[in-house]
Design a binder for these strands. Structure first.
Length: 606
DNA sequence: ATAGGGTTAG
């Protein structure tokens, strides 16, 4: 019985002897058939051997071998996996026939490289040829619709999925819900999730991380708890997403429980989880644990260093940031590292050091400074009162200043009492974003501090008739594994009367030792008595009062706030710490404030 | 042969 001539070639490939197989191919010439080529291409994909892959392809052309759709597609995949997108496309364009797999492979090549437009263009072309997409195609296309713009296309792909009866497929479903979550349509994401007939780790993780990435941390925790009780499978991605959410709500006790779970299960990619743990402990105010996790890591990635640097920076520990940064060995700082270090210097009041590092970064030319880095420098100069210099820096930047940058400089003007520049910036800002209440508040504070009361009234008048958008203030405190959340002038908390009475009591007591309410923090057109009442309703005051009422241990009182703490609440907290002898930690959206004995670690700059 | 979720910053 005659054996096909390329059987040996196939065996060599299966044995991983690619060089010998290559020789065999050359020797066989036009006697190489499908099985030989298929084996060669498979081995090239496995080894990512693009050079040999190109030789195999060239050999087919030279010997006038006509590859089947299958083999052409395998070649296409080979080129894609070896990183040769252009070769893949050229082959695709020249294919005499294409099937769903060919199209999907080509689309996937673009999708995985983040080429959204080309992905959609090809998908449309595919539909125009009359071919029906399968579950692979749909999952691939949807995976590239993962931003605010993509959701427009994503919705259309969704309807294609419904028409072809793939909506409930696990892979398509998780792509779909992820697409909606990334497009900030978490409600639609939830509907897709709830309608899935079967769920797996990925779809469950997708919905959890969907909530977490939108900052809906409590919702992320709730759905995790529910799914966990139902016995969902968890892997390192699940726990990483969950820990991010727990960091957001500063839920230290839950964080430790997850840490324990992660240790018990001995999950793979523990490095990633440790990075997230460093971050979580820091955001929960437990820097000691962050550092212990960091120190115990047998291997660190740049993300580990970044997370630790961010932790120190959030706590205003500039010296520790610098010390850690200078001890970075075997790891190259990346763009995030510099953001963390510069922002750490800023929060720690180390302007000179920060500027030096920025110069070093510019001179090294390895990393191009980005908007975030420039913003840190503006913040840094503003902090030490070099307002004019910051203005000059902004004018000389190679990038357009952002609203946030002006906002930070405006804050600096308030602290340093520079109301001429402050007013100039505020006017600009009120023009660009007339609906942001924060700008009015700071401007009003600046005028109030300068005693220019007629200007305070003017600011208030400017707000009249404009719709002022302000994210509602929200503060919370974790006691006994429960998150107690308070909104401004909260009327919903079950203990509301007691809490309000407690705030009032604290208020009377600290007035005796010098606290004066800062009425310019209220921008509503009401009389002073009403303003005072509104000030006392601020969510962080409610959380502080609640904490004093229900935490019996003498330890530090940890409050978290979604916005920046206001001047009056900051002052209130300082006086409460002085009067009660308790230490307070207030984490606002910018940093930690450690308040003890009437002073704050932020040095009244934030 | 082709497919889905993820860590640090802002």
């Amino acid at each position: 019985m005659d054996l096909p001539p390329d059987v040996h070639l196939k065996d060599l490939c299966l044995d991983g002897r690619l060089n010998e197989a290559l020789v065999e191919m050359a020797v066989l010439g036009s006697k190489v058939r499908f099985r030989g080529y298929d084996a060669l291409v498979t081995e090239c994909v496995r080894r990512k051997a693009h050079r040999v892959g190109q030789l195999v392809h060239a050999h087919m052309l030279k010997t006038r071998y006509r590859p089947s759709v299958y083999l052409d597609t395998r070649l296409l995949i080979m080129y894609d996996e070896c990183g040769l997108l252009d070769d893949a496309r050229e082959l695709f364009d020249g294919m005499p026939q294409r099937n769903v797999v060919s199209w999907t492979a080509m689309i996937s090549a673009y999708s995985q490289r983040g080429c959204q437009i080309e992905t959609m263009v090809l998908f449309r072309l595919m539909l125009q040829t009359g071919l029906f997409p399968n579950e692979f195609t749909l999952a691939t296309v949807l995976a590239s619709c993962v931003n605010a713009h993509g959701i427009v296309h994503g919705r259309q792909v969704h309807s294609v999925a419904i028409k072809n009866n793939y909506e409930s497929h696990v892979y398509v479903g998780s792509s779909l819900l992820n697409m909606y979550a990334k497009g900030s349509e978490i409600h639609d994401a939830r509907i897709v999730f709830e309608m899935l007939p079967e769920r797996d780790v990925v779809s469950c993780t997708s919905i959890i991380s969907g909530y977490a990435q939108l900052g809906l941390d409590e919702e992320a925790l709730h759905i995790f708890q529910k799914l966990f009780k139902q016995g969902m499978e968890c892997n390192y991605v699940t726990f990483a997403s969950l820990l991010t959410a727990l960091a957001g709500i500063a839920a230290l006790d839950y964080g430790k429980q997850v840490h324990a779970l992660v240790i018990r299960r001995q999950l793979p990619f523990y490095v990633v989880l440790q990075n997230t743990l460093i971050y979580m402990y820091a955001k929960c105010g437990n820097l000691l644990y962050s550092r212990r996790v960091f120190d115990n890591m047998p291997e660190k990635t740049v993300t580990s260093w970044n997370a630790m640097l961010v932790g120190y920076g959030d706590h205003g520990l500039g010296r520790e940031v610098l010390c850690l940064f200078n001890s970075m060995k075997d790891v190259k700082p990346d763009s995030v590292t510099y953001t963390a270090v510069l922002s750490g210097c800023s929060h720690g009041g180390l302007a000179e050091e920060g500027l030096e590092i920025f110069d070093k970064m510019v001179n090294d030319k390895e990393l191009q400074p980005k908007m975030g880095h420039y913003a840190c420098i503006v913040d840094l100069l503003g902090r030490v009162g070099k307002i004019e210099k910051a203005l000059e820096f902004i004018k000389n930047m190679p990038v357009e200043p952002t609203i946030a940058m002006w906002g930070s400089l405006l804050g600096a003007c308030r602290v340093h009492g520079n109301f001429s520049v402050g007013e100039y910036i505020a006017q600009e800002l009120l023009h660009v974003e007339p609906k942001n209440a924060g700008n009015y508040v700071i401007l009003s504070n600046i005028f109030a501090d300068a005693g220019k009361w007629e200007d305070v009234i003017r600011v208030r008048d400017m707000m009249k008739g404009r719709t002022i958008l302000k994210e509602p203030g929200r503060s919370w405190i974790n006691l006994n594994k429960t998150v107690h959340t308070f909104h401004s002038s909260d009327r919903s908390h079950p203990q509301k009367d007691k809490v309000h009475a407690k705030v009032r009591e604290l208020y009377e007591k600290i007035k005796e030792i010098g606290y004066v309410p800062n009425l310019s923090c209220v921008l509503y057109d009401v009389d002073d008595e009403q303003k005072e009442r509104m000030l006392l309703g601020h969510s962080e005051k409610l959380a502080i009062a609640f904490g004093l009422m229900y935490s019996y241990e003498v330890g530090i009182l940890r409050i978290t706030k979604n916005l920046r703490i206001c001047v009056d609440c900051h002052n209130f907290a300082k006086f409460v710490s002085k009067m009660s002898g308790r230490e307070l930690s207030v984490r606002d959206c910018k940093r930690f404030h450690f308040i003890a004995n009437g002073t704050c670690s932020c040095g009244d700059f934030w």
